[in-house]
């Protein structure tokens, strides 16, 4: 049964990874505006081949948020 300790530790590491991922998303501003993206996706396909925004890698809200 000692293997349980390893398993618990492993599961905590996996869950912790998701927690860290959440914090990364939070800090990069993904939770700042929950309304506009829902409208934005409606016309995402409208100007194909001109998505200059993603090319530049420029961020408006801080760390890597595009």
């Amino acid at each position: 049964m000692e293997i349980m300790i390893v398993l618990i530790g492993f599961s905590l590491v996996v869950a912790g990874g998701f927690l860290i991922a959440f914090f990364w998303a939070l800090r990069s501003g993904q939770f700042d505006d929950l309304f506009t993206p829902a409208m934005r996706m409606l016309f995402e396909s409208r100007r194909k081949g001109r998505s200059k925004k993603t090319e530049s890698g420029e961020s408006l809200h801080g760390n890597g948020d595009i």
Binding site: D32, D33, F35, T36, M39, K52, K53, S56, E58, L60, H61
Partner: peptide, 13 residues
């Protein structure tokens, strides 16, 4: 370069 709207705040960055 780029512009982004926050609809609920009526703001443009």
């Amino acid at each position: 370069v780029s512009s982004r709207v926050d609809f609920s705040r009526r703001e443009l960055a």
